[in-house]
Amino acid sequence: MIAAKGTPDPVQDSISSLLPDAATALEAMERTWPARRCRDLRGWTLRLDPGAGKRVTAATARAPGGDIAAAESAMRAAGQTPLFMLRPDQRALDAALDARGYRRVDPVTIHAAPVAALAATDPRHRVCQCDFPLTVMAELWAAGGIGPARLAVMARAARPRCWLLARADHQPAGVAFVAAWRGLAMVHAVEVPPALRRQGHARRLLAAAARWAQGHGAGTLALAVTDANAPANALYAALGMRPVARYHYRQAAE
């Protein structure tokens, strides 16, 4: 039964109560996809991990009014182009960076759903769970632009964690990484070769990640994806995943 428009829907309310708030989702992302080094500086958390992607090289404000110039200098000294991650409520900082010529790039949404619902979406067990990345997995990731620096991020992630390999007709068909923190499992680096996309392999990887999460005490599965990735966002919506957090970056012109 569908609740009438404007009336409470007990099923939807129950699902919402299982999902993390934005702060928890962002903290879980930090724990399960950690930078090589973090540094606190004058109201900022600086993530220092050159070459490993935006999530682990962006600075975030710990309090309003941080010294932007100091953060810029520290990031440049570490060999990184100044980059800041901002939540929707950080409008003043967003405007200040815009005034300094920073480009707004890569808006991202974190989606989440109860693991029980996701685990049931694909009951077939055609995904291998690995304790470390196999050579064939590294090759699939490398073909998708996920190289050694990001594999090193996975190796630093909080435990428990798992590398997933989907297979089809005895051939590798997709890879993903999942790790759990305080009852929330985060999926990262989902990669399916272009020739094998739109065949259900990403769906199988998420279902396998959810089953793994169930076995490790996590009640919710989440992942982050850029808003520009329309096929991925459509898949996650079709699987019943809901937005729980948003952020974007401001990147220096150089």
Rank of each mutant, 00 (worst) to 15 (best):
M1V: 15
I2F: 14
K5G: 08
T7H: 15
T7F: 11
T7N: 10
V11F: 15
Q12N: 03
S14D: 12
S14M: 07
S14G: 06
I15P: 06
L18I: 05
L19D: 00
P20N: 03
A22S: 13
A22V: 08
A23Y: 14
A25R: 07
A28M: 14
A28I: 15
M29H: 13
T32K: 00
T32R: 00
P34H: 07
A35V: 01
R37I: 08
C38W: 02
L41M: 01
R42F: 01
G43R: 00
G43I: 00
W44Y: 09
L46D: 03
D49T: 09
G51A: 07
G53H: 01
K54Q: 10
V56Q: 06
T57Y: 11
T57R: 13
A58L: 02
A59G: 03
A61D: 00
A63D: 01
G66R: 00
A71W: 04
A71N: 05
M75G: 13
A77N: 14
A77F: 14
A78T: 13
G79A: 13
T81C: 14
P82I: 11
L83V: 06
F84N: 04
P88L: 07
R91V: 15
L93T: 12
D94Y: 06
A96H: 04
A96I: 06
L97W: 01
D98G: 15
A99Q: 11
D106A: 15
D106C: 15
P107G: 05
T109Q: 07
I110C: 13
A112G: 07
A116F: 07
A116K: 07
L118H: 03
P123S: 02
H125C: 09
C128I: 14
Q129T: 14
Q129A: 15
P133R: 08
L134V: 05
L134F: 12
M137C: 09
E139A: 12
L140K: 03
L140C: 05
A142D: 15
A143G: 07
G147P: 05
A149P: 08
L151G: 09
V153T: 13
R156S: 09
A157N: 11
A158G: 11
R159Y: 05
W163C: 02
A166R: 04
R167P: 00
R167I: 00
A168R: 06
Q171A: 13
Q171K: 12
A173E: 02
G174D: 04
A176H: 12
V178K: 08
V178Y: 05
A179D: 04
W181Q: 04
G183M: 06
G183R: 03
A185E: 01
V187Y: 00
A189Q: 11
P194S: 02
A195S: 14
Q199H: 15
G200Y: 05
G200M: 04
R203K: 05
R204C: 05
R204A: 14
L205E: 01
A207D: 08
A207F: 15
R211F: 14
H216Y: 10
A218F: 09
A218M: 01
A218N: 07
A218H: 09
T220D: 03
L221H: 02
A222R: 00
A224R: 01
V225A: 11
T226P: 05
T226L: 11
T226Q: 11
T226N: 06
N233M: 08
A234Y: 01
Y236G: 00
Y236V: 04
R242Q: 09
R242G: 03
Y247V: 03
Y247W: 10
R250I: 03
Q251Y: 10
A253T: 11
